[in-house]
Design a protein around this nucleic acid. Sequence first.
DNA 1: TTGTAGGCGTTATCAA
DNA 2: TTGATAACGCCTACAA
Lengths: 338, 338
Amino acid sequence: MSITIKDVARRLNLSITTVSRAIDGYDDVSEETRHLVIQTAHEMGYVPNQAARQLRRKRSDTIGYILPADQPRFSDPFFAEFIAGLGDEASMHGFDLLVSTAPPGSSAEHQAYERWTHGRKVDGVVLNRIQLNDWRVQYLARAQFPFVTLERSLDSCDYPSVEVNGRLWFKKLLDHLVSLGHQRIAYIGASPNLKIQADRLAGYRDGLAQHNLAYDASLVLEGDLTSEGGYRAGEHLLNLPKPPTAIACVDDMTAMGVLHIARQRGRTVGKELAVTGFDGIAGFEHTQPPLTTINQPVYQMARCLVQMLADQIARKPLPEKYVQIEPVLEIRQSTVGE
Amino acid sequence: MSITIKDVARRLNLSITTVSRAIDGYDDVSEETRHLVIQTAHEMGYVPNQAARQLRRKRSDTIGYILPADQPRFSDPFFAEFIAGLGDEASMHGFDLLVSTAPPGSSAEHQAYERWTHGRKVDGVVLNRIQLNDWRVQYLARAQFPFVTLERSLDSCDYPSVEVNGRLWFKKLLDHLVSLGHQRIAYIGASPNLKIQADRLAGYRDGLAQHNLAYDASLVLEGDLTSEGGYRAGEHLLNLPKPPTAIACVDDMTAMGVLHIARQRGRTVGKELAVTGFDGIAGFEHTQPPLTTINQPVYQMARCLVQMLADQIARKPLPEKYVQIEPVLEIRQSTVGE
DNA sequence: TTGTAGGCGTTATCAA
DNA sequence: TTGATAACGCCTACAA
């Protein structure tokens, strides 16, 4: 078994109280004693039992994040960067990061949130892939459990969030495409109950409207935020009697799939057939042709979320509650060619 | 505060013992009582306190994984897939996944492992990016703490692992390049104390030797497993008076960087200048030109690791202790051209 | 089949 | 400045 505080106390002929206080840095213990205790504890290899500490302190120093994994095989570089940001910032605040995967809406997802929040396995949670009406938001708000979100749902709860104005920035992609002369612009989106889908589709329509282009339902497809989904939707679009000259995708992964099918069909992506993404996944600037996209600072956004969550857990007032992130329109060869 | 087992017991005029046993499914409680207890507990929204349970049971039902994050900004799709695999398989065994990031060899890393293992925050850990002599392996083996690794270190400890024969498969890449007529083949590797570097470099040398090509130290560079590192090393190689005609990279991210610089220099990657990777990151088959690489089933490997770790934690005998994974040589346009 | 009681390792309250 | 003692919420001999 492991060394406990008791062992250290016994060795020093001190009470466990004193040892505990010395280690936790209380100021009502003599310098001499503290020094001795810390040294001995270290020598003996004492490490506080986390469960006991949690039980007593009523906090776990852990934050939770559940990956919205629809597919059995779930791999999107977005999340590597996102998780790295969460983990790095969590460390800085002395938190561990607990991660799980669950299909959105599944009972597994419900149970995980229950266990984590009511079972107090975590002190707060980070949400993303927010839905228009999101049960998680309602559930956590009602339980008064600390949480932050990437993107805001339409639920009328008050909670801190980080957001990119998807509608505005997607419209900028449309502006860009129209400025290149495109008139038949398709859109490959995602599940309609996702907030990003609603926003980005709205931006798409705004863009069409502004330039007096008609909305053509046959050019608007639903993908699934994977390259496979993009591939299939892209295939459908290229098979149309009169295919689009530009395809605006809801995210970078979808755009990857479109690049793939375009290539297979011998279509040169660039001026002739323009393709855009959204996210700015690191590494994807190296695809060929490099992808025109809206580049979001995913890592920074994740860190910002954890920062806000940590403040909330510590009941500190937040300097900013609704953070707007300004992404960057990256114009690359997938729209302008060589 | 949350509902405790006490609250449920009081409401039903039962002892907490009975409630506990009913919920945990012991068979010495009447069907009637069990039904009542479970129903009431559910209604009241009772969820067992994880800390108390952990303290009592002496296990956390959690496994840990620390990302070897050298850089402040750490994003490699390899890990998205790896973590997804860990998380999915962990869920199946009733484990949560605790993730942290720490620079390899840092004191933060030491402390994290101490806290997690001796503090019993996790029941077992998964390691990767193994070093030739890895303090983590030695530390965990000495503490007799359950762990599994992706790749094996040279330490003479006995522990379960999953491995791809990097030496053998890297040599196959060399065979492929030579078969295309390349004579000046460069290698961009990683930190020399990494196991994958040692293996893959050995494979590189094996390949040269087998085909009677001299080892030329000026063609062997050290990268850092990022696309930036690949970019810089690639730049250096292309600046040589007599640049290589093929560049074999230690991993896919490095290869991405090489594709990038080659493109900037107006060099067409394919027959004229061949580039290879290693890992088979999902999504990278869509880069252009698609990358010739060794495709490892990362997701499966992660699941296999957790499977073995779970067995080890449960003290079940492992059917296989040293799992060899057979990857696939994916020949794509980055070596054979259009 | 159910209840009593002790303890897991810490921290916090209070008194010495 | 230090120590005894009581929780924290749960599980489990053991007793009834």
